[in-house]
């Protein structure tokens, strides 16, 4: 009897515990989602392009979205151009970035050669400098070739990919887990190192390849510091991040705030869909990377 009561007590306790957890989770979901609900509402507001203190538009309209896709006489909203810039940068640099990272991480994981440890240490130390500091030199050089300002697309591709090898850690961690015995068996059968890489290791590395492409593709959409420095205030050379920030500076805010909201929605939808689609690979990469450091 007393046993039974104790059992009942435990059960009540877990029920209370679970209820508390449910309440917290529901509250969290609201807090995490509400800004995104708000931005969608504000993007449809027709009566005022600035900030107002209420959420529900008094006048629903597509005007803010239309403004993104027609020519702006003041050249302040050049959303199509920014989108095109960012897309080209993201697409090209994700391929080059992935190629470079795979070369580096595979080599450091699989091959033993003189200077390997030293190389890894040098990269570790280099990583402790704020990467932005390289921009002062690179900007001057790139501006000589005309790859800054309005022509910033090739310049940014170069900057995003050139030192890609520094981010080899996650995929090296992956290659470290692929059993070496496979390589050795193939080597005994007379395969060269290159054949081992292309015929055996790469086909198995699909998750990490997708992870690298995904993160490298998403990076230019979110990068700010390099893009802003290279664009140097020229609207034609901006990426969406820089261009959109430009819309909500003090002088532009009252005229373009709702345009900013609409642009946010337009940018977020394709990226979010792509991400949710490839989520599995991202989660694997992130967890693997954290455990291996």
């Amino acid at each position: 009897m007393s046993d039974n009561r104790k059992h009942m007590g435990m059960k009540a306790k877990t029920t209370i515990g679970n209820t508390v957890i449910y309440i917290i989770l529901v509250l969290m979901s609201i807090i995490w989602l509400i800004p995104f609900v708000c931005i969608v509402f504000e993007s449809f507001r027709g009566e005022n392009t600035g900030q107002v203190g209420y959420l529900i538009p008094k006048q629903w309209s597509w005007a803010n979205y239309k403004a993104l896709f027609v020519e702006d006489p003041d050249k302040t909203v050049q959303f199509m151009l920014w989108y095109k810039n960012t897309f080209i940068i993201a697409a090209v640099s994700s391929l080059i970035h992935t190629f470079i990272v795979l070369c580096t991480s595979y080599t450091l994981s699989r091959m033993r050669f003189r200077g390997r440890k030293a190389l890894m240490n040098i990269m570790l130390v280099l990583g402790m400098f704020p990467g932005f500091i390289t921009m002062i030199v690179l900007y001057t050089i790139l501006s000589k070739i005309g790859w800054t300002g309005a022509g910033s697309v090739p310049g940014l591709i170069l900057i995003y990919t050139a030192s890609a090898a520094m981010g080899y850690y996650v995929s090296k961690g992956f290659f470290d887990t692929v059993p070496r015995s496979l390589d050795e068996a193939a080597r005994i059968d007379g395969a060269t190192r290159a054949q081992v890489l292309f015929r055996i290791t790469l086909p198995m590395a699909k998750p990490i390849v997708i992870y690298q492409i995904l993160t490298a593709f998403m990076a230019p959409w979110g990068d700010f510091i390099f893009a802003k420095y290279i664009a140097h205030g020229t609207s034609a050379g901006m990426t969406v991040a820089v261009g959109m920030q430009n819309l909500i500076t003090k002088s532009n805010n009252s005229a373009h705030y709702t345009h900013f909201c609409a642009a946010g929605v337009v940018v977020a939808i394709p990226i979010t869909v792509l991400f949710m689609f490839l989520q599995k690979y991202y989660v694997e990469g992130v967890t693997g990377g954290a455990v291996k450091g």
Partner: peptide, 14 residues
């Protein structure tokens, strides 16, 4: 996870 998917600069500026 949905909030990871939305580009950070959009959520931060908003």
């Amino acid at each position: 996870v949905l909030t990871i998917a939305i580009p950070q600069f959009v959520s931060l500026m908003y």
